[in-house]
Amino acid sequence: MTATTTPAPLGALVRRRTALGRLRWAISDAAALTGRNLLTYVRLPQLVVFSTIQPIMFVLIFRYVFGGAIQVPGASFVDYLMPGIFVQSVAFGAVGTGIGLAEDMGKGLIERFRSLPMARSSVLAGRTLADLVRNVFVVFLMVVVGFLVGFRVGTGPLAFLAGILLLLAFGYALSWIFALVGLGASNAETAQAAAFPTLFPLVFASSAFVPVETMPGWLQAFAANQPVSVTVDAARALMTGGPTTAAVLQSLAWTVGMLVVFAPLAVRRYRRAT
């Protein structure tokens, strides 16, 4: 019989790592976990299907049910609507980051990962990167749906692409907020329940579906300046025309700000041994 479990020599296991070696391992660990998380989406396509059905329903409802009653200045409603839908999709997609982490914790997988000689950032990096890839897929699908219901790009392909990248980056930053929520939740249901009360006001009291000017004055102050509105305004300007600079800069500032604050907080939360 081959001694398949004979322990390896200690020297081979305990290697002093250089900074470069550590970085290489951190990247390799994150890539391995990104692959694992994406494989889950392939194995359980319902996870992706559910996160795409909802925005498709929103498109259809707003386009064909509410749309006729909503007046937007200077544009057809479908052109106004679709950038909002894109941002909504990535924002709701970010909740999946928290749910996925809470699920892994519940199953004891995070415990196992924490006992392995892995980079401490890799579980979170792997999760958020996989969710970014999923968001790319969902947004692509929503673009197709948008074109099918009459959405037209009013600027150019590059500006359109810039808009897509901007809102994907925004969704990625949101993922880190929900990573923190997910790590603090005892199970997937709690993570979901904790996420939506924060997300709903941001998504609906925003410029995503209706012009902020139609809201009561006290709400406008919030709705006009909160990160979802800012990002929707920026994406809308890049895709359908209008002044872009201020909105794009504000959205980028939010994205960078959220990453700078919440990524370290989430990693710290992950590291913290209980």
């Binding site: 194995r43 004891g108 892995m118």
Partner: peptide
Amino acid sequence: RAVIGLAGQYAAVDANLTGRENLRLMGRL
């Protein structure tokens, strides 16, 4: 962490991955 192995009370394997994929993931990590 490099010199220990841990198997817990609750079988901490990824239910959505195959047995082989689980072990390969551990190999990479």
